[in-house]
Design a protein around this nucleic acid. Structure first.
Lengths: 128, 128
DNA sequence: AGCTGTCAACGAAAACATTCGTAGGTCAAT
DNA sequence: ATTGACCTACGAATGTTTTCGTTGACAGCT
């Protein structure tokens, strides 16, 4: 298993769509992106072709309009970015990242409860 | 007030040093970086000059060896990156980012307590 | 058969980021 | 006054990412 490269910004935007929609054609992706990125169709196509080369996406060529799907699980990519960011922006402190995220971006009551539960669990683990 | 551009990777590494050390010369920054980045002195210099142009750092030219300092508070930059990342990698869900960070990167007991406290506070706010 | 709209492929330009060599200035010690 | 160490400035090469124009193929319609 060759390690896949870290997606660039543009690639990330595409992955986001693929994760959300599941396997999609270039046109579908391009249209989903349209709001966020003002860019031509061939740009999206090219990017997706490059991603296929890199192995970031799988491509089904059986019909004329190819079907692309993400090869990386979303969670794994998220982990990669979080790790990177903790090192590069938070000087290694994951707690600082969490605090920053929590204090500026409010979560719902349910989410807060979920997070709290995770913390309790972590604390239990510490005791042992 | 002109909005400052998002720092690139290399710039971030330099900012990191400036935040930690306070105002520093190019040499000091370069030496601090040395472990992490295998790059020549003039590369660091150039990067810092560019950052000065962009407004990311302030430069005191009064003595021959210039003194550079970060113009952005660390917390503000962290906020910028977190916000960006929530949008681009977590599809807008801050809670997911927090969960991801907490579950893969363990924090100390004290930090966990601190985070928990912040959550309790948030929950109180929700009630009102 | 000829037209039209849609597609993938490709190549090249443009934009951006990183790297370093070289030159010229200043300062202090010899 | 010359040398050597150290500094900034500048310009150019390299590398990476993004962008798009053009081409040729295919499919459906008239």
């Amino acid at each position: 298993m060759t390690k896949l490269p870290k997606p660039t910004e543009g690639e990330l935007a595409i992955l986001q769509v693929l994760w959300q929609r599941g396997p999609s054609t270039v046109r579908q992706v391009h249209e989903s992106l349209d709001a966020a990125r003002a860019t031509g169709y061939t740009t999206t196509l090219k990017l997706m072709q490059i991603m296929a080369e890199k192995g970031l996406v799988a491509r089904d060529q059986s019909s004329r309009t190819h079907l692309y799907s993400a090869r990386l699980p979303q969670a794994q990519t998220q982990r990669q970015f979080v790790t990177d960011m903790i090192a590069k922006v938070f000087g290694g402190s994951s707690a600082q990242l969490v605090m920053q995220a929590l204090s500026t971006h409010t979560a719902s009551k349910e989410e807060l409860a979920e997070i709290r539960q995770l913390i309790e669990q972590k604390k239990e683990e510490k005791k042992r």
